[in-house]
Amino acid sequence: MGMGKYILQRLAFTVLVVIGISILVFVITHMVGNPVDIMLPLTATEEQRQLLTQQLGLDKPMIEQLGTFLKDAATLDFGMSWWQRRPCMEVIMDDLPLTALLIFFASCISVIVAIPLGIAAAYHKGSFLDRVLTIISLGGICLPPFWIGLMLMLVFSVKLGWLPTSGIGTWKHMILPALAISFRPMGHLSQIVRFEMMQQLNGLYVITARAKGVTETAVLFKHALKNIMTASITMIGSDFTKQLGGLSASVEVVFGFPGFGHLISETISNMDFPLLQAEVFFVALIVCLINLLVDILYAAFDPRIRY
């Protein structure tokens, strides 16, 4: 099977997954609560309630509501947000690119830091350096990101005054939130790189390479690095999608960053069904596309993988 055919197949599969998840979220949200109770004050009369229910289309049978939703979603029309009173697409397009950029920055930071750290720890396994690097990466995984964010803010904004504490606008506003988000993926990735690199360095092909006179630098970067990439990109992709799916919310709140994670949590507490469905639709779509990208990259790094 050729690469092109494989990609087409996966894209078709992506459509199925997105439809499936949309239906699931639709059914669950319509079963858990009544948005009318949240949108209207407690003093509202029964007539007012019924009127709103009718306006929102919640009085129709669920199957009919689902049909309308899917038909509109096919044209990327998710209707009006109940909470923000403007089209859902507009709300999402305001926040999603910003957060995607933020998480992309955070991923870049984590990759640039974690791969050299992991390689150094693996090369000097059991040494003092290895222990220190392991403690740092475990710290990155264990410490809550909002706390890291607050500490960064304390040092770089309050004490040193180098960077703004909150808001958006310039690239300077991105640095601290991206840094705060990057700690956890950095910890994950450096642990994976360390472990994978140790495995590779125990491999016989490393002895073959050294025995023909290859330098240590070339052993690490020309021979072993390519063989740890499949595991590494799996981790990078998985952390990226997790952050995008709402994990970045706490950091966004700390830095007053009007991002997607923040939006998701607000949407849920406001029971804004149309907006929530639109958000889930995009998260599912992006997760599927990133997984597809990761799978395509596998083939680029490991010649044994062919599609």
Partner: peptide, 23 residues
């Protein structure tokens, strides 16, 4: 690196895993 290779080269006993799979 001057002794390895030019001086003494080695054929390992396990050909299945002695070559780099990604080159």
């Amino acid at each position: 690196k001057d002794v390895r290779g030019k001086g003494m080269a080695m054929i390992l006993q396990e050909p299945m895993s002695s070559l780099n799979p990604s080159q």
